[in-house]
Amino acid sequence: MEKLTAFVVCGTGMGSSMILKVMTDRVITKNDYPIYLESGVVSEARSSNADFLIAGSDLVPTLEDAGKPIVGIKNMVDKEEIKEKLDAVLADFDRTG
């Protein structure tokens, strides 16, 4: 199954979302999701070829003009929330099961 690419967006540019990336990576590994993770800042997210973006939910308005689906996470260490939202995105891309 072809993997989707997700881009984890950092708000400061110095890795404040690194924890989000690590947690998301764990959820992906544990559930064996077909997702490949990249990360970077807002401007890089806009110009990337990723299929969808992952960011803290407060960044969502800034990213809306990127033209890609955005997964907004409120609590970056809450794996349940991450899994739930990834499930929803995977369903949208028709990659479940």
Binding site: S16, S17, M18, I19, V22, D58, K74
Partner: peptide
């Protein structure tokens, strides 16, 4: 940072991560 995270989880499993301020912005 991922190395710190990994090491700390092995050594102190009940540790609470203290995160950068954007973690509270949402």
């Amino acid at each position: 940072v991922p190395a710190f995270l990994g090491i700390s989880e092995k050594v102190i499993p009940d540790a609470i991560p203290a995160l950068d301020c954007p973690a509270v912005f949402p």
